[in-house]
Design a protein around this nucleic acid. Structure first.
Lengths: 232, 232
DNA sequence: TGTGTTATCCATAGATCTATGGAGCATGTA
DNA sequence: TACATGCTCCATAGATCTATGGATAACACA
């Protein structure tokens, strides 16, 4: 089915680039890609996370696989998908940056639904590093567990947004919280900050999220939280 | 025609990103974008450069404009298109990097048609800067004139590939030549190097091209060559 | 006010993409 | 060996996208 001519013609380069472009022409595929830049996941989890039917999700993933932007690993009956490399996440980041820079609608959506709390007053990565060293802040990872386990800022506390209220007591009320999530388009951290503030805490968002942290060459840790709980 | 719902729903973010994805799903649009990252151009020139009919080129440009990745400037009866910002070129660069990293076909095409001369032995930007300072090399811009005029490495000589043989005498045979073009996917510099070598000159390619040079924060010059010729 | 140049707008046939239900395939498990 | 689970493959109706010719619009220049 895949015709590979013996000698690819010169113009084929842009055809090849378009193979990758095809991945990001569908909103759901972008959403999938952003999830996969955080952690690997089986198809079923991806379908659930994006609200797709299983077969549809699988079809999208096949398209992404043909473009080689994702790869897979089989574990028993499950197939885990993951971003095929750093370049993939850098590409997604560049896409997001471009959209935020050029499409006023994106900013508008982030502002409307996100939270006004995280707009101008984000903590820079450099500032965070310094203040963590000084023991001045708590770093809060509000993404789902599996994403924390795949990669997180060393020393960060895992507290998925959905458990924020229930586990509020784990946070020292006197120390400022810096929350982070998937990136500038993700609303988890802004929402967490909003809720923390309405609970009377001092809280801010980190600039960007995990992929940008990694891309900045900063240290990354992996593995389940040490808190010892949730033996699973 | 463009329905803008009063309050955009949360999921709209990925729809917005897909607006930009749509630009890079078509090979010709990627080609146009790469051209526009070098220099602004009127529609007719873009159509000619990409081998598109005028109406088709215009249609593609409209799509790119709706995604806000290009903007226009009118001059008399001509409409000049240009990349709408740095983020656009960074995005295109990231796309190319991803394709080179993940799609073996791209490397293959570059190797097959490009030139074997520029594969492993490219000059780094840092090395070039040092050697230019030492007066050790000639920097050669082999892109079309308008691209040189829009932006070039300071001190570079403009010598579009098509005139290479005719103007070979302008190059001191004893000084090594470092040629550059649009970027890692562009074949102009590799071809120039091949021809220079077969003419007995020492020549190498610069890593990447103009956009990457600019993105690295290095100095950029603009304007026609000082050689005084071509009064036009 | 005409005319030529450039570019956009419009309508459309043909090609491509999406979502989805159902069948088919590996892998564990009883 | 029989089943359950988790995915992929297949066929298809409906929606979108592309290329293109012809008409129209914006300018410049007589």
């Amino acid at each position: 089915m895949e015709h590979v001519p013996p000698s690819v013609e010169r113009d084929g380069i842009y055809e090849q680039l378009a193979r990758i472009g095809k991945v990001v022409v569908h909103p759901k595929r972008i959403e999938l890609l952003e999830l996969l830049c955080q952690a690997e996941r089986p198809v079923e989890a991806l379908a659930a996370a994006t609200g797709l039917k299983l077969t549809t999700a699988s079809a999208h993933l096949q398209i992404m696989r043909q473009a080689r932007v994702v790869s897979t690993r089989r574990e028993g009956t499950r197939v885990y998908y993951r971003a095929a490399g750093d370049e993939v996440c850098r590409f997604v980041t560049a896409l997001g940056d471009l959209a935020r820079a050029r499409l006023a609608e994106v900013d508008q959506i982030l502002r409307e639904i996100g939270s006004p709390s995280c707009d101008a007053e984000r903590v820079t990565r450099g500032e965070l590093l310094a203040r963590v060293r000084a023991g001045d802040v708590v770093v809060l990872d509000v993404r789902p567990d599996e994403e924390y386990e795949a990669a997180h800022i060393p020393g960060a506390l895992s507290l998925p947004l959905e458990h924020l209220e229930a586990r509020l007591s784990e946070l020292d009320p006197d120390i400022e919280v810096v929350a982070y999530c998937r990136g500038p388009l993700c609303l988890l951290a802004p929402q967490a900050v909003t809720r923390l503030r309405s609970a009377g805490r001092r809280a801010r968002c980190l600039e960007d999220g995990m992929p940008e942290w990694r891309q900045a060459g900063l240290p990354v840790a992996a593995g389940a939280p040490e808190t010892g709980r949730s033996p699973r």
